[in-house]
């Protein structure tokens, strides 16, 4: 328990540092944050000064940050001058789609990579394993922008299977349309993930399959399926779990590209537009949310380690 508390505290610290640095960086880069926040249209001097006061932009960074944190807790993060809505509404509208995109791609990648890796490791150096090894190597080397452009050209422009400009349709409204709209961005993100997961898991499984307790399991007369799924897989999950956490930041980055190419109105697109239009508060909120997501995923994976491995559980209970 102590370990979890410690880890939790550490992640909070990381979150605070990330958001503080983001705020300072964003505002320091601007010539006058208040003028940017006033927006390009109604920027009378009086209005600029009013905004300066309202967002405490005349105060030192730590104080500004404290006010921002207070606003974060009350979920009142101000208004976007360019999009004419409150930051909370904007993020609230956009975040779920990106979250879903991330979950879909990780989920799809895990569902596909587990059996592929297990079979490749089981028939090590066989034709399937070699094919998988080559294919994943190529897929890891395939930049997602190229993949997205290819997918967009063939599936959306040429064959018109999926819409080119995706729209935001919630799964509970029309599930079929929802799938059609998020399919291409999801595949864009998932291909690289599948390749990475398969390579990691296969390598770990090959190692595990050579360990003594697998010979022991065979000597017990267990079936290959049982040995693979019940004995070998569980001991081989650690690198994969670490990788899921590490890749999550990358997935958010990929989401910006994918949303931009397929015009899917998610957080990535919002962030991209906000940076271009100097919409400081939106950038800050997006960055905070991204950082929060990364931090939470890391925490969950940390907890999962202990669930999977009793040795960690005990070592931590003692330490």
């Amino acid at each position: 328990m102590r370990y979890f508390a410690q880890r939790f505290l550490q992640l909070i610290v990381v979150f605070l540092i990330v958001t503080f640095v983001t705020m300072v960086a964003i505002q320091a880069a601007s010539k006058d944050p208040a003028r940017d926040l006033a927006g390009p249209l109604n920027s009378t001097e009086a209005r600029v000064e009013e905004i300066r006061k309202h967002y405490h932009l005349d105060r030192a960074y730590p104080i500004r940050y404290a006010y921002w944190l207070k606003n974060l807790v009350t979920l009142d993060l101000g208004n976007s001058p360019t999009l004419g809505a409150s930051v909370r509404t904007l993020v609230g509208q956009r975040a779920p789609i990106t979250l879903l995109l991330g979950l879909y791609s990780i989920g799809l990648a895990l569902i596909l990579s587990l059996p592929i890796a297990v079979y490749a490791a089981y028939r090590r150096d066989g034709p399937f394993d070699r094919f998988v090894s080559g294919a994943t190597f190529a897929a890891v080397s395939l930049p997602n922008i190229i993949l997205a452009v290819l997918l967009g050209y063939f599936f959306a422009t040429k064959w018109r299977i999926f819409p080119y400009a995706a729209s935001k349709i919630w799964p509970w409204d029309d599930f079929g349309e929802h799938v059609r709209n998020v399919a291409l961005p999801t595949i864009t993100l998932a291909v690289g993930l599948i390749a990475i997961f398969v390579r990691l898991l296969r390598a770990d499984l090959v190692n595990t399959l050579q360990s003594d307790f697998i010979v022991m399991a065979r000597a017990k007369g267990l079936s290959p399926a049982r040995i693979l799924w019940r004995h070998a897989l569980r001991s081989s999950l650690f690198s994969l779990m670490t990788s899921v956490a590490l890749q999550f930041g990358g997935i958010l980055g990929g989401a910006v590209v994918a949303e931009q190419i397929f015009a899917l109105p998610g957080m990535g697109l919002l962030l991209f537009q906000a940076v271009q239009q100097k919409d400081l508060l939106v950038v800050q909120a997006c960055a905070a949310l991204f950082a929060l997501a990364v931090v939470i995923i890391n925490f969950i994976v940390d907890m999962l380690y202990a669930v999977v491995d009793p040795r960690i559980r005990h070592a931590r209970a003692l330490g």
Binding site: F213, H231, R234, S235, V308
Partner: peptide, 12 residues
């Protein structure tokens, strides 16, 4: 087997 540490499944 020779080594009970490595021959028993550590996670079971």
């Amino acid at each position: 087997f020779q080594d009970p540490m490595t021959s028993l499944n550590p996670l079971m």
